[in-house]
Design a protein around this nucleic acid. Sequence first.
DNA 1: ACGTAACCGGACCACTGGTCCGTATAGTCC
DNA 2: GGACTATACGGACCAGTGGTCCGGTTACGT
Lengths: 206, 206
Amino acid sequence: MDQTTDLTGARPLPIAGLRHERADAAANRLRILEATSRVLAEHGADATTIDAVAAAAGVGKGTVFRRFGDRSGLFQALLDEHLRTFQDAFLFGPPPLGPGATAEERLAAFLDGLVDLFDNRLEVALALEKDRAGPPIGGYLALSVHAETLVREIAPVLDAPVIAQLLMNALNPHLVRYLRRDAAVSLETIKASMRPLIAGLARPSS
Amino acid sequence: MDQTTDLTGARPLPIAGLRHERADAAANRLRILEATSRVLAEHGADATTIDAVAAAAGVGKGTVFRRFGDRSGLFQALLDEHLRTFQDAFLFGPPPLGPGATAEERLAAFLDGLVDLFDNRLEVALALEKDRAGPPIGGYLALSVHAETLVREIAPVLDAPVIAQLLMNALNPHLVRYLRRDAAVSLETIKASMRPLIAGLARPSS
DNA sequence: ACGTAACCGGACCACTGGTCCGTATAGTCC
DNA sequence: GGACTATACGGACCAGTGGTCCGGTTACGT
């Protein structure tokens, strides 16, 4: 995906067909992403409007849209940064998340990681959730594919894509927030509660 | 909850403390609910704004808000009508949904029913989803409680409320729409894919 | 130094949920 | 039937939001 390695994490351009991204444009992208993080952390997902982000970044709102296309694109870009770390971990990292453990262990670790991710980056995930409508997009897609692969490996006979979707859907940011904040459920409990859901995959269904 | 039996299904008043609901008011509530159904069916959840509903009902938009409080309240009232049937079925109806089957069979039937419900009343569910933020409300609450009871019965040792939430979350209207419409997955496949998720509840986790 | 393609800012637009209040009317009591 | 009042009605109005547009600015290759 990246053709030029860039320590800042900025990708060449979200919109294709252009040669260079001007230095000021790149700088603004960074400022915007950073401002988004800040506003999310300080004021929460609901208060993080594009206007607020633009103001915090000291930039016109037109600039935000030009850089990221639309609201969804902004949060996707931000979340993708975090997702990339997670992705590396489950693709190339040490077991049980990475290769080297059984598929079932890996799936459990993957879902645990997803819980942690939502807990850490709750506001970003919530903000993104607001316009997401069903189909997994952006960084989520890679996660889906991974989950699907693991499910298929555990239970070749079952309909892996659907089960993977169901499992990933069970954990959504809104629910994590509710359980953690309002129901005072610990992360460990949430993770432990996911286990029985995958425990039934291995045995052939009756 | 209902203190006066009313064949039309209209409840006394959404807002407490008042004696009678005037006849014109009751009639308007019905017209609004009916118009909402129609608009949802014809134009989809996204296009179903309060203005559109009010216009379709031949009523001022103020009337809609007075009757139902806010957007969420309108769709909740509409969905609750449908949920009530489902509720009766799993509380008092014949097995496997109603009492008389094992808890595991009942849970499976319950989730199947939820899939059917989302499939039948997809647009209402989607419209409601738009403002719902985490905690189950209105009619959903009763469903949660039921699911929780069944889970507890199957696996007394596990954290039933959390697992119940996870299971119900796995099935959300957005996902059902995506699977059905874009991924061309059959209802049967979705239902079948939920089975392995509950299959693991019974056995003590390792 | 210059020309141009790329970029910027913020005024502007369309649309939405929600409020408000002057007017109309159902229901009741005489 | 008439009058009185709580209740309800309608739609103009408001504030907030995502997204567009374009005149003016600036980076950067030549």
